[in-house]
Amino acid sequence: MNPAPTAAYVSGSGRPRLTFVSGSVLAMAVLMLAAWTYIAFGQSWPSHGFFSGETASRAWSFLRDLAGVGRESTPAYLEGAEWAAAGRLALTTLAMSVLAAGIAAVGALLTFMFAARNVMVGELAPYRSPLWTAWFGVVRLAYALSRSVPELIWAMLLVFIFSPGILPGALALAVHNFGILGKLTAEVVEGLDTRPARALRTSGAGWFQVIVYAILPAALPRFITYLFYRWEVIIRTTIVVGLVAAGGLGMEFRISLSHFHYTTVTLLLIWYLLLVLSVDIASAAMRRLAR
């Protein structure tokens, strides 16, 4: 590793100067202070404000409910049938996450080359026409739009369109991650060594051939790594889109919570954690395989 990565911190004079970075850190601190001031004094809240004795006792009784302490019925997490039912939901949720990652990957793979500056308007650009540059802008905007809107909000929009089930949830996750994967892959392309691509170009390859034979193979390993990282995020988020998109663990979670079936909530959380853990392990194994 580079032995001196801290050049910015040890440069020159003893007095700290106000650089962009230190200014930004300062601005962040001011923002934090403003935010806490606003929370403390800026608004009137219907229920209790900060931590009080009452919130503490409510939190404690909620924890007892989750564990099923002081109830006559057997807690759901001790019943085999409940485990099996929640397990089926977990399997559906897993399918939702794979579907989402797959659709996002296909979308990003089909578009990422149009969002990389160097192959669109830079040294590898096929045309210098405003129309081509506009297309670059459109793809970039599509990425920004799709990744800025959170998965849950996409799901809220998509449940009006698609039949309930795991499909609207998977699509909502896919739309959001399409923008993230596309942007990340385009950034990989922008950081590539373009000499092989230029060599192909000078030997007569067209733009599309350069993309397929020089850019894509070089960007693909990083793309696969990002895809698996995103899968880890997606599995955590499936439960959230499930809350509104009527599929998997998420819906059952919300129903149980609003019906005060707290021990079922605990069981669903256990399955959720098992799912997250196994996807983390699987993703790490696949990333090692891809390396």
Binding site: I39, Q43, W45, P46, S47, H48, G49, F50, F51, T55, R58, A59, F62, L63, L257
Partner: peptide
């Protein structure tokens, strides 16, 4: 929210 109610906390 279930544990401590609808508060900014």
């Amino acid at each position: 929210v279930a544990a401590i109610g609808l508060s900014p906390m």
